[in-house]
Amino acid sequence: RRAIESHYHTVEISSLLPASVCSPSTKGHSKRPSTLKVFHRHGPCSKHSQDNATPSLDEILTHDQSRVDSIQHKINLNAEMDKVKDKKAALPVQSGRALGSGNYIVTLGLGTPKKSLSLIFDTGSDLTWTQCQPCARVCYKQQDPIFNPIASTTYSNVSCSSTRCSQLSTTTGNDPSCSTKTCVYGIQYGDQSFSIGFFSQDTLTISSSDLVPKFYFGCGQNNQGLFGNTAGLLGLGRDSLSFVSQTAQRYGKYFSYCLPSSSSSTGHLTFGKSGVSSNVKFTPFAASRGTSFYFIDIVGISVGMTQLSIRPSVFKTPGTIIDSGTVITRLPPAAYKALSTEFKKQMKKYPSVPAYSILDTCYDLSKYTTISIPKISFTFGGNVKVDLAPSGILIVINSSRVCLAFAANSDASD
């Protein structure tokens, strides 16, 4: 009995629902230098939660699918470009990255004196940008005052002739342009959201004792799309202009985060090795396609006591990335089918209900206060087994619809 119980989570339904008041985490944050508090964009810990434009879960999942489509497109494009390079030919390149609903935000300081900005943090993109006055074309409404470069004594524009300006081609997928000798960036995401503006440098403040001088970022003059009321985006990808690369000397390309289990609690984003848990298990990054994404290898999935029968090539052929900006994990169709089939089998005592958006395995748990759900574990390369938290297994749509929080890619080659 004890062995069986160790393969199940006993979950109070109420614990899956966000509370109306913020309960900050006592772990991680404030114990270490270079640590930022992470909170959900639409929860009570965020000052953005009062935003009237808070999307429904259905809208979030629709945006999530736009982001996923765009990631697939970008990686396929990289594969095509690799073929092109082999052939020493050239094709026109179009950038495509959906921002969708980035969901988790951190607050940083920019400029001198510093101005606080709430940015979506994203391991699936590279360029850090914020909306800038005078908003020559369009700025969307944001919660923080829009950054005014004229008011910062440490702000400068980047010249068109600088090496950093030319690096924008890989960072954004678009060649930079030039306006009165100032480098102009343009980044467009797969859902047609975009930011265009001056490529700039200024001091970025992580904490009162931790400043990054001459940080390269986009000072957006024309920003439109699904950015909510945030001030922009913090790019934590692998490319040369990402925050991670720009601060390599300071933090050694090492960062960690914890995303809270509900929108009413907080997590942390920490730069540098200091204070990382001693019980971390590491999996090697897999060979990357493109310069941005973090690839890892999934080698197996278990549900409760059952190890799913999935051929290694199902994961190996398309590959897998980890992304803080995608909401729902996408699995190859064969892997998802095995997962959902076994999950349904072990959840058969609970009444099922119709699909919701991209989520097709849903239950009516309104008559229960406590449920027992099978643990789901992922095994990554290097035999690293990771148990998902209950919040990583089920997502609550409403009191009568709770769904398995996974979805399938539409094509095995995605």
Partner: peptide, 30 residues
Amino acid sequence: VGILGNVQQTTLEVVYDVAGGKLGFAPGGC
């Protein structure tokens, strides 16, 4: 590609050792 999304990463401490070429996970990060 498959994508490990943020719902599945909740409560884990996720550690990016980019220079060391590895990604770490630990339970109970927040």
